[in-house]
Design a binder for these strands. Structure first.
Lengths: 326, 326
DNA sequence: TTGAAAGCGCTAACAG
DNA sequence: CTGTTAGCGCTTTCAA
């Protein structure tokens, strides 16, 4: 079963290689008659194109790499979903990786993507430093990162945090809590905390950082959440507690723990999440969530990549909307 | 910024192209001295390999395609997760698609994967018929399908359904219900129903098919589930109801509806899911679930692909474990 | 232990 | 509108 190539179909149709190539790439240059002949042969031999050869010669592919920290967070799953769907329209294909632990492994991963000549990489992982990323000679679209001089898409974390705080106060919460699984001050998501703390600065409030919550679908996260809820209840008996969680999965975990304990939602504890991923709508009691507009994020990611490519010869810096904030 | 290739590093190291190529592919044939020289130059020029050219000439890639029906079901997400992680060890990269609506679109999708010279395709979508699949000239590993003459991995649905029924009876349920989002009799998952119905044949039982449950994270599914629970409660007041759901997400949705209504779990309704995906462990009340052993499935999928490839010259039929049942 | 030369399957000038 | 020619960056005989 030898691969049938452009050559065979050229011979069978009595035309040259070039003409067949043009059938695919510049069909408007061919006469109807030739086109028909070629099409017939293609059908007959059941030919399908070889993208690998095409990529090699043009130097351009429609492959895009994505590196997620993990796939368990519903924000990531949903973003992947949206990227695949939107990418499909534009004929992009995605190579998906989940991040490794070390900087070296991650750089190797990116090298692997480059070796497939990906058009660009959507980066959600947080392992590399901005300067690492700037050195890479592939277009990078980073999501929820900031600091470096490359294309970045973020939601307006500051306003998000602020809105959450204000809403909880408005709803009569007497103590305001933020639960987060960890941050660095140069991450955009740090601003969720800043915004929230600003909003609640005149009220009793507390920020709880617990790294064990990072993978919400783990025993360790469940235990950590349970401990947090226990402490909060002891400390703030008889007060209405308002909790802003750094993502929807954590919010969901919190709600779960409250329900198990028979705590009334939202009478005793009111919860707000971040992301507006599907999990927030389909919790036992749908959870209010700060919207990241995941579908739009996916679209902007793809579109930025196209802008990137379109202007790669020009001094890119001036043309690409480097920082997009939703 | 021209791409540095094998050629540049050959010149700089004072050796031939071939030698540099061998540095990567048959290093044992080179003298230590040459190797060192080449390595130094590689570092110096920051060279990285070009897989595209390599694939073109060898005809073999480490790309694997995956086609999911959708990404919302936790079984799919978790399988993807496991495939990526296990594949990483073996240096495979995955191109991920979600399925389209029609047979033609799906065939086009597969053609697209072929055009990237994927080593094989892991197929979870159910659109194509077994004979469609047999005609494809790419190795296909199908999961939860049966009927055709190609590599298939299934869990033992029959026993799974049976176990679920038996467990519910053992736990004192008086009415046995199966909730499913739809099936064809030639799908392996149909056997879940058969096994379950066998187990409960001497008890009052009922099988509910509701296609609206297919995407559990949709308004329409929530409504459908709510309607089902309402009907069940009306019909079987005061009886302990045992429900076997066709997947964990449906089970989770059911639990959610019950909790909202204040129904006691498991006193009034007892739930069993299928898949043993993370969602079953992290429901409000962890849900008993029939294990599909997703990590093992991922491993077998990859390994089957390797077996496939290794023996592609031989009459494959006799060598490949066509049907694997977990 | 190394090199020269011939492609892999396709596209892109350039020339009719 | 169509064909000729020269590669893309690499691997692989074959020969030294």
């Amino acid at each position: 079963m030898d691969k049938v190539g452009i050559k065979e179909i050229a011979e069978k149709s009595g035309v040259s290689l070039t003409t067949v190539s043009r059938y695919f790439n510049k069909p408007h240059l061919l006469s109807k008659k030739t086109k028909d002949k070629i099409q017939a042969t293609i059908q007959e031999l059941n030919y399908s194109q070889d993208n690998v050869a095409r990529i090699l010669v043009t130097g351009k592919s429609n492959l895009v790499g994505i590196i997620f920290p993990q796939l368990h967070l519903s924000f990531y799953t949903e973003l992947l979903n949206q990227l695949i769907q939107y990418g499909e329209e534009k004929d992009y294909s995605f190579i998906v990786y989940t991040s490794r632990d070390t900087r070296e492994e991650e750089l190797a991963m990116i090298d692997r993507l480059k070796s497939y000549r990906v058009k660009g990489i959507v980066l959600l992982s947080h392992i590399l430093s901005p300067s690492d990323i700037e050195k890479l000679d592939v277009p990078i679209i980073s999501i929820e990162r900031s600091g470096g001089n490359y294309c970045q898409i973020n939601s307006d974390n500051y306003t998000g945090g602020k809105l959450a705080g204000e809403k909880l106060i408005e709803d009569g919460c007497e103590v305001l809590i933020h639960i987060n699984n960890g941050y660095y001050e140069n991450w955009p998501s740090f601003k969720r905390i800043v915004g929230f703390e600003l909003a609640v600065r005149n009220m009793p409030h507390e920020t709880i950082i617990q790294e064990d919550l990072t993978d919400p679908y783990s025993e360790i996260a469940s235990k950590a959440m349970s401990a947090i809820v226990g402490t909060l209840l002891d400390k703030y008996t008889d007060k209405k507690i308002g909790v802003f969680c750094s993502n929807d999965d954590i919010a969901n975990m919190l709600q779960r723990d409250c329900i198990r304990r028979g705590i009334k939602i939202p009478e005793n504890i009111e919860i707000i999440g971040y992301d507006n991923s599907p999990v927030s709508d389909y919790a036992i009691y749908p959870i209010t969530s700060i919207d990241q507009n995941i579908p739009l994020m996916a679209q902007i990611a793809i579109n930025s990549l196209e802008t990137y490519i379109a202007h790669e010869n020009v001094v890119a810096a001036t043309l690409i909307p480097k920082k997009t904030t939703l």
